[in-house]
Write a protein that binds this DNA or RNA. Structure first.
Length: 258
DNA sequence: ATGGTTGGTCGCCAA
């Protein structure tokens, strides 16, 4: 089975690229983040004409997640319980061929110490508690999406310059470790210890061309998922700017084979 | 300390 995570930075602006990606790769499941559209306005028609089924959980302007597959998903749900956390359309989950997928768009946090950063830590705590309560079983389970956390110094172009900065701070990495401590592994690291494999490059300053990237899109699997996982790959070509109007997302798709 | 680009929406906020 092939499952993909991709922060598309607006599904409407990126629609032709999403269609092209689905045609080329034919994944069993595509998990989108930052769809930035309410469910009623999700561009369904051209997808449904090609046999794709859509489960969307969106909001106006910000955030938004969706699951796209040809086989119907089981046990679909969106959001999660976190009493003090405002609902921001950041999570949708479903089960395909016995594998549970939890698609997450983690709070960015902007800058260490600001209100959004504190909210990010609280949100990650609530996510961890929710997964511990509802999903800590033997069902093959993958938590995948835009985590907005760089796992370690191999995963960023300038670890010294970003030391304890946003996406790299110890409290954020501790929250990622708390998720792993529930029995999950970073599936990417099952297959390579190489440094310099990234999934996101800033639009600004020609970051992609200069190699200024980070690995912040992750797939975490429990033991049953680890046993099935044969490969994790980044589709860097999708991030390239083919011509002046190609308009890539700032994230590349993460392709998980299991 | 900086950023200087993109998207949604239409003056900015968020990433």
């Amino acid at each position: 089975m092939k499952a993909v995570s991709w922060n598309v930075n607006s599904v409407r602006t990126r629609f032709e690229r999403v269609l092209g990606f689905l045609d080329r790769h034919q994944p069993d499941l595509l998990c989108l983040q930052e769809t930035k559209v309410v469910d009623d306005d999700f561009p369904r028609q051209a997808l449904e004409e090609k046999g794709w089924l859509i489960q969307a959980h969106g909001q106006k302007t910000y955030n938004g997640v969706a699951l796209i597959s040809k086989t119907p998903l089981a046990d679909v749900g969106s959001g999660f319980l976190g009493d003090h956390i405002p609902e921001q359309a950041r999570v949708i989950h479903g089960t395909l061929d016995g594998v549970r997928f939890i698609n997450v768009y983690v709070v960015n946090g902007k800058e260490v110490g600001c209100d959004k950063y504190e909210m990010k830590l609280e949100w990650l705590d609530a996510l961890q508690q929710w997964i511990a309560k509802d999903f800590a079983d033997d069902t093959p389970t993958v938590i995948l999406g835009d985590f907005n956390i760089v796992p370690d110094d191999r995963d960023i172009w300038d670890p010294e310059g970003w030391h304890e900065k946003i996406l790299c701070s110890t409290p954020e990495r501790k929250r990622l470790q708390n998720l792993l401590d529930l029995g999950f592994e970073d599936l990417h690291r099952l297959h390579t210890q190489e440094a310099g494999i990234y999934t996101w490059w800033d639009y600004r300053g020609g970051a992609f061309g200069r190699g200024f990237g980070m690995r912040i899109d992750l797939a975490l699997g429990n033991a049953a998922a680890v046993a099935r996982c044969s490969a994790v790959e980044v589709d860097r070509d999708e991030r390239k700017k083919g011509d002046w109007e190609a308009k890539p997302s700032d994230h590349a798709p993460l392709i998980v084979s299991l």
